[in-house]
Design a protein around this nucleic acid. Structure first.
Length: 926
RNA sequence: GCGGGGGUAGCUAAGCCUGGCCAAAGGCGCCGGACUUAAGAUCCGGUCUCGCAGGAGUCCGUGGGUUCAAAUCCCACCCCCCGCACCA
């Protein structure tokens, strides 16, 4: 026997597996599954491990069930993150260097070359392949590609041509975070500060001011009728500037921002805030009002000018109150215009006074503002004289009206500030032109996607709601970028196709990836792909034979059966890919199913590379063995649940594998004669096979392992206990071993490959036949008998512990026939109360009086406690209790070390014998 | 805020859709025992409370309700996690 040595098993199996999982079209039925490909900007951790092992287990399962399985892998390298990383490394950024050198263990010589982004992804994609192979993933590596391969770009161009022609791509304007120093849009990864900041849309309400205008920024244009004054910060220097040729009075900051938002701005002169105080302005909807001083006015917020609605804005209310307490502006009264449940006539006053706010410096002001804002938005209604509409509707309408009739303009601003770029410069909102969008807002496109979703299998089913919501909610998606790696956008080659948008139908590309390399990229015209994927013939197609082979391959594999991905991709990638599929492929080639994963935790905390809270997959393999990692990840939670990696649990998984390995070794050569208990074991095995198969059909890796591993192990425990003295099992165990090894092969392929070889099997267990449940071997009668015995043994045990005397003998008294009749009558009747009446009609029963009634109660109780199938079997077939116990007599005597007597309860001298019930003999220990 | 998912014994986690097999699987931890010079590993037993007869009591976020019967169905509340876009 070979020692249990996972590392050695791995080495051996990996050699035997070289090229084994390369998969080509064949006569067999296909099963094509894909996972979201990784973005290789760092080392793999155990969380990644699960993402790729789950599909591998499924792939291995279907392969053993005789399907032609394709499990391909590629690397996603388009986008900006890796560029940021290379820049940071070039700049010798301490944190980044530490991460790559210490956590990801990149050798110094290689790290030096990481100033080139492509070197980073090359390094890690090689590492990914090495580690994935080490995990035993049954991937067809011939089909590996990266998203910056020239041939792949040709494929993307073809895809976009179709999207464009179908009207799914449009040009528009879009506000983005923008750094004026770098002259580029700023992604999340490039932010030093303010990564939570959102761009929000202000309406500038235009007030006339002498020959100029004052634009005040508001999120609540519907409150225009409640404006009583403007606010200006007396300590700030404002400017008079020509905006698109007209004179505006705004803050200096605003002047700068407006330039980025499609306005031509020239500053004419400075005006101090103090000079503006008490001046008069006007607006058609609220007439002439005064400018008042307020310190809370922030010149860096939008236009730097604020209109005051004291009835509905706590800040406005309190600033006004502060002034009035100094005896000024006594004539100004708040003008309420919104009715909102839970607040008085003047909501802002109500809120401020209830909270006991003293002045505008109070720290609770922000909170209070938010509270009123939300309450009025969700529950508020304008007064009848202002239209009577709910705030949420009126706001949009008034804003629209303001723009159309009163010269209002839109201004974008961050909701929280400051937002700072990595270069240290302040980030602003800029309106980008020439921004291209995918029109996910298109209703007819959406409805095609919804239709497709209805036809798809979603695992787990609960995610369907989330998908439906996402489709419903998706707006146009900005699909081009100015920085990063990727395919040039065909209609504006200064831009690139955004990384989520170039990864939507690449599952089709896998089918041809290994063949298309043989054709040089410049020959790959859209017509070529039209032919391969859509079967559209056209003249002068190059290298027709190769194209035919690709077409054949595509037709064989497509559509994919299942796509696997973590659940955080539901709201983008997983939904996008359906949009793109319905836009390009024919109905019968649309995706069939998706499996959505949960996330990984490490010792209870969320795994995060940037926080260093990761455990590298390769380290895990080296420390525990690949099979251990696989079995742990598959057994600790179902795929869609979050799992938690804990080293101590992983260690015990390793012991389980070892226990399995040793058990097989002990059993595979025994050759005793089969006993009844062998029939029981075989019968149980069939059920485990059936349930393991069902579980894997449903992607329940955990459930499958429970059945295939613990289920069988527990049966073996009972089996060994039941064997006759000196017997170590029958030759039937050999077939159990064979089935057991195959059942576990998808989970722990390395160990199983080794065992399979030791059985003297020629081929790989990876391609062996999956065990099939043999219904002929299922023997309910024997299972029922064992169940009776097991329960009785448990009962004897618990009594023995309780009474603490040294038993001299055990007597089992069996229930009389009439109690069986009672039991069966109750078991068979749907309504238990009717059953009682039925039983008591019988004269013989009635004569037994209280004893009969008690039996009825006890039987009812017992029936509810027993598993339904058992009750049903007792009722239908019955069980010969005497025979069961007589046969198990020597077993019981061995178990308890005392003589065991089996008697009928009726006529027994023991009072306890009266308690005997069907399936529950009375036990007397003396 | 909007949307989605959850709260089960010391921890972890099944069960919930389809109400009685539920004092509630499995695993971990802990306790005891066997083995061992010892430790580890392994195996056996225990692990809500009470009980010298296989039983009883309390229990599945909180509070109500439906039912002969509720972890499971209904209502309300509290708490936790995830997504919300130009980012892979």
């Amino acid at each position: 026997m070979t020692e249990f040595d996972l590392a050695a098993f791995q080495k051996e199996a990996l050699e035997r597996w070289t090229h084994a999982f390369e998969s080509n079209p064949s006569q067999k039925e296909k099963y094509y599954l894909t996972v979201a490909y990784p973005y290789p900007s760092g080392a793999m951790h155990v969380g990644h491990g699960r993402t790729y092992i789950v599909p591998d287990v499924i792939a291995r399962f279907w392969r053993m069930r005789g399907m032609q399985v394709l499990y391909p892998m590629a690397f996603h390298v388009t986008g900006a993150p890796v560029i940021g990383i290379s820049k940071r490394i070039a700049r010798k950024d301490e944190k980044t260097i530490k991460l790559y050198r210490d956590l990801y263990k990149v050798p110094p010589a290689v790290l030096d070359k990481f100033t080139d982004p492509l070197t980073i992804v090359k390094h890690f994609s090689d590492e990914y392949q090495r580690v994935m192979t080490g995990c035993g993933l049954s991937i067809d590596w011939r089909r590996r590609f990266t998203t910056v391969d020239p041939t792949y770009s040709k494929f993307i161009e073809w895809q976009w041509k179709h999207l464009y022609e179908a009207g799914h791509v449009t040009k528009g304007v879009h506000p983005v975070r923008y750094c004026t120093h770098d002259e580029n849009p700023v992604g999340d990864h490039d932010l030093l500060e303010g990564d939570k900041a959102e761009v929000i849309k202000f309406t500038l309400v235009i007030f006339k001011f002498d020959d100029a205008i004052i634009p005040t920024a508001t999120l609540r244009p519907e409150t225009i009728h409640g404006v009583t004054n403007l606010w200006v910060n007396p300590n700030v220097t404002y400017v008079r500037a020509l905006v698109d040729g007209k004179p505006w009075v705004i803050s200096r900051e605003a002047a700068e921002k407006l330039q980025l938002q499609d306005h031509v701005v020239t500053i004419e002169k400075e005006i101090t805030g103090r000079d503006l105080i008490n001046k008069t302005v006007s607006h058609p909807l609220c007439g002439e009002i005064q400018i008042l001083p307020a310190d809370f006015v922030d010149p860096d917020m939008a236009s730097g000018m604020v209109m005051s609605v004291p009835a509905h804005a706590p800040f406005d209310f309190i600033a006004l109150r502060d002034l009035q307490r100094q005896g000024k502006y006594k004539n100004i009264k708040p003008i309420p215009l919104i009715k909102v449940e839970g607040y008085g006539e003047i909501p802002a006053q109500d809120a401020v006074e209830t909270a006991g706010i003293i002045n505008q410096l109070d720290t609770r002001m922000e909170e209070l503002t938010q509270e009123i804002y939300s309450a009025e938005f969700s529950k508020g209604k304008l007064f009848e004289r202002f239209g009577g509409k709910p705030v949420r509707i009126a706001r949009e309408e008034v804003a629209q009206e303001m723009i159309e009739k009163y010269g209002s303009v839109i201004m974008y601003e961050f909701d929280t500030r400051p937002v700072v770029c990595r270069c240290g410069n302040r980030v602003q909102v800029k309106i980008l032109h020439d921004q291209w969008f995918l029109k996910y807002s298109d209703q007819s496109w959406k409805s095609q996607v919804s239709d497709q979703l209805r036809d798809m299998v979603l695992v787990p089913p609960e995610v369907r709601l989330e998908f439906d919501r996402t489709v419903d909610w998706l707006k146009d998606w900005a699909c081009t970028r100015r920085v990063g790696l990727g395919t040039r956008f065909p209609w504006d080659t200064t831009q690139l196709i955004e990384p989520l948008s170039d990864s939507t139908i690449y599952m089709a590309y896998y089918t041809i990836a290994h063949r298309i390399r043989e054709i040089s990229p410049e020959k790959l015209t859209p017509e070529v792909f039209d032919y391969i994927f859509l079967g559209i013939e056209s003249p002068n197609l190059p290298e027709k034979e190769k194209l035919d082979a690709m077409r054949k391959e595509f037709l064989y594999w497509y559509p994919y059966n299942f796509r696997f991905s973590a659940k955080d991709l539901i709201s983008n990638h997983l939904t996008f890919q359906i949009f793109h599929h319905v836009a390009i492929f024919q109905k019968h080639q649309l995706p069939k199913g998706m499996v959505v994963f949960g996330m990984g935790l490490l010792n209870g905390a969320k795994m995060s590379s940037s926080k260093g809270n990761v455990f590298l997959l390769e380290d895990a393999i080296n420390e525990f063995g690949a099979d251990t990692v696989r079995m742990f990840l598959m057994g600790s939670a179902e795929p869609w649940q979050d799992f938690d990696w804990r080293n101590e649990l992983v260690l015990s998984t390793k012991k389980q594998i070892e226990r399995f390995y040793n058990a097989i070794h002990e059993m595979k050569d025994v050759g005793g004669e089969p006993e009844d208990i062998d029939i029981w074991l075989m019968s149980r095995l069939q059920e485990h096979i059936g349930r393991t198969t069902t579980a894997l059909d449903n992607f329940q890796t955990r459930q499958a392992l429970q059945e295939a591993y613990f289920g069988i192990e527990n049966d073996l425990k009972w089996y060994r206990r039941r064997l006759s003295e000196g017997c170590d099992g029958s030759r039937m165990l050999v077939s159990l071993c064979s089935a057991w090894v195959r059942l576990l092969a998808p989970f722990i392929p390395f160990t199983c490959e080794k065992l399979w070889q030791e059985f003297g099997e020629q081929g790989l267990v990876s391609f062996a036949d999956w065990p099939v449940e043999d219904k002929k071997l299922v023997n309910r009668r024997i299972e029922l008998a064992e169940e009776l015995l097991l329960r009785t043994v448990e009962d004897i045990d618990s009594i023995r512990k309780l009474i603490q005397i040294t038993p001299k003998c055990i007597t089992l008294s069996l229930a009389p026939l009439w109690k069986h009749t009672v039991f069966i009558t109750i078991a068979r009747s749907a309504d238990k109360t009717l059953a009682i009446r039925e039983i008591m009609k019988d004269n013989a029963m009635r004569r037994r009086g209280k004893e009969a009634m008690d039996t009825v109660k006890q039987c009812t109780n017992l029936i509810h406690r027993l598993p339904p199938q058992i009750v049903e079997m007792i009722a239908s077939e019955g069980v010969n209790e005497r025979a069961v116990f007589e046969q198990a007599k020597s077993f019981l005597e061995k178990e308890f070390g005392v003589p065991v007597h089996i008697t009928d309860a009726e006529g027994s001298a023991h009072a306890k014998a009266l308690t005997a019930l069907p399936f529950k003999p009375a036990i007397v220990i003396e």
